[in-house]
Design a protein around this nucleic acid. Structure first.
Lengths: 204, 204, 204, 204
DNA sequence: TATGAATGAGCATTCATTCAT
DNA sequence: AATGAATGAATGCTCATTCAT
């Protein structure tokens, strides 16, 4: 009966925030529109006033965070010429900023757990970004290879996929499985592993 | 109207094969029991004669392939003392055998794409196996570290997670995204990367 | 296609009235939700908008009439001190009022014919009311015994159960079996029987 | 696989005994043919070899006990001329014999709890027997009225219905509700009540 | 903007019964 | 006489979406 008037964008943003949390907690498929509207305290019609359906909410969530990520990546892009230590620092800084927002973890959880099984071109968007990251990494490798810093015989794309595969799995265990992981040690080990390899150098 | 009689197990196995294919093609959530029975040309009742529900089919599929995988892993387990080259060969042999069966690829697709969003303790089964593999790898590392073949400063568990993360991502792109990937080169690069690292050794 | 809009409570009440009639006519088990919705000319969803299931409708019907009955009983409760003739009159008045509403007869039919075979705690509600009635009667007996109006050697609870058993059977034949019964004579005979017994008093 | 051959009648009787127990415990509607055959350890087909369906089993059970009851009633029928004490004794004897068989209690439970809500002419059979009993009682009353033992102003049929209504309710509470009831006292009170009434005789 | 009653296709499941073996 | 795989109509229920108010 009450017609709580709100600024349209504010309401939309509220519903998105709430949906993100519910999707993250219970999975996209397990959350119904009814769940969302009763949690948001709005009527059915109001929901469809703001979104064309359940999928659109997810799309908007994905778009929102993807926009942020593309922005963040620009910073890395410029850094092409910097040293590994600088890169490392920038990565960590960006990561810290992103993880500060609660929603980003929830976004990651949905992306890593659910998106691939929803399909609707949505996975494409995510994958496009992922591939872009990998390719940036590959370009960086090529650059470093030209400078003689990195082994020339390594395929830069494949190597990049390996690194991001390892990182993705770490994030999955952290965000989706909620394992207690010593992140600093994990990252440190990853750097050592990817930079120096496992084999003991044979001293001649 | 016709009652096509079959041996109970044969029919069950037929339905499972068909379901596996449909789950793999269209995703677990997108396939309804109706889809399965109309594709299988059987009546509703016949389905529920063999399975308690849609989830049970998936469980039985998972169990079937997990059993095969646990069997396959036994072979690797014994190989603890062998050289890296031997290990490499055994892995490739097992992989070849597994990939020969069409169903195994479909199983992998479901596992990598859908399972994490279904949850129902089913993901646990898969993860338990995955962790077992990682731990076997870690034990192998420890062994190799004792023999001085592998760097002692690398955490064997984290390193193993990195390797399996990279491999998982490769398989995902291969099986789920159906990218055309040069597998031999990918594996070769992965070996070089993980064994020798990226950095050019500074010759003094 | 058309969306006949109604006040929520009005529609709910309409469905209840209709269900009551159908349950009464054909028996609770013989009436499916489909039967109800097609008779009511509403969609499946509309039914489940108002009721959580078939059983809930019955529960709400029971609750509605039980509330009325408990209200009616309050009148009797106060009358503890009155004479048998007064009691008789009040009983008849209340009965007349109740039987005026068509639904009450249907309610009685369901209660007497179906409820005991549905069980789901629902019978408990009915039985609780029935026992309350019997106990009120027993208290009245005790009162009358104290005043020397009624034989002291009769167990008041058992006697009350006898009376209500006889009445219940009468109502059953009237409402469920739809026998043509001369109610006034039946009640009159019952009063004579229970008050004075069957045996001819031996005059000395 | 095993084809346990049994005498047809023995098997039929076994299934009936089992069904009776299950119907009595869980209610006719709540027991499926599947329940029966799995409890009996026979195959679906075997069941339909002996019975045309679930309802037929119930019918056969009802018929069986009704036959016994009609037999028992013959004894009472002859006793028309005997005294109240003799009648009382015969009733108690017959009751004792009947209650000795476990199945009779189960039969009563089904009859009093379920039958009226199944309807299918089956209730008619039961009711016919019930009415026969009532009418026998009425005839006895008339007889006794002629002999001046019982008040002439009481309608013998209505009075009989009262008595049987009271008895039915007692049996219901005993068999269906499984209340702990002092049967001897109940019967004793009932006799006192129906024979002598409640009112204290006014001595002049 | 906002509401919430209404929709109906879709889904999972049950179960009495049939019939080829 | 016995089996049990197969049937399919029937049933209960969900849920994204629409639309009159």
């Amino acid at each position: 009966m009450k017609k709580k008037r709100k600024d349209g964008l504010k309401r939309q943003s509220d519903i998105m925030k709430l949906s993100l949390e519910m999707f993250s907690d219970r999975g996209y498929h397990a959350v119904s529109v009814d769940d969302i509207i009763s949690a948001a305290g709005i009527a059915k019609g109001t929901f469809y006033l703001h979104f064309s359906g359940k999928l659109e909410i997810l799309e908007m969530i994905i778009d929102k965070y993807l926009t942020i990520l593309y922005e963040s990546v620009k910073v890395l892009d410029i850094s092409m010429d910097k040293s590994i230590e600088d890169i490392k620092k920038i990565y960590l800084d960006v990561t810290k900023i992103l993880l500060k927002e609660k929603g980003f973890g929830q976004f990651l959880k949905i992306v890593l757990r659910d998106i691939s099984s929803i399909n609707h071109e949505l996975y494409g968007k995510i994958n496009t970004f992922y591939v872009k990251l990998v390719m940036m990494s590959a370009e960086f490798h090529i650059n470093a290879q030209k400078k003689g810093k990195i082994k020339k015989e390594l395929d830069p794309v494949i190597a990049s996929y390996c690194i991001f595969g390892a990182v993705k799995d770490l994030v999955f265990r952290l965000v989706v499985l909620e394992e207690k992981i010593d992140i600093m040690q994990s990252i440190s080990t990853m750097f050592d592993l990817f930079l120096g390899g496992m084999l003991v150098e044979k001293s001649t």
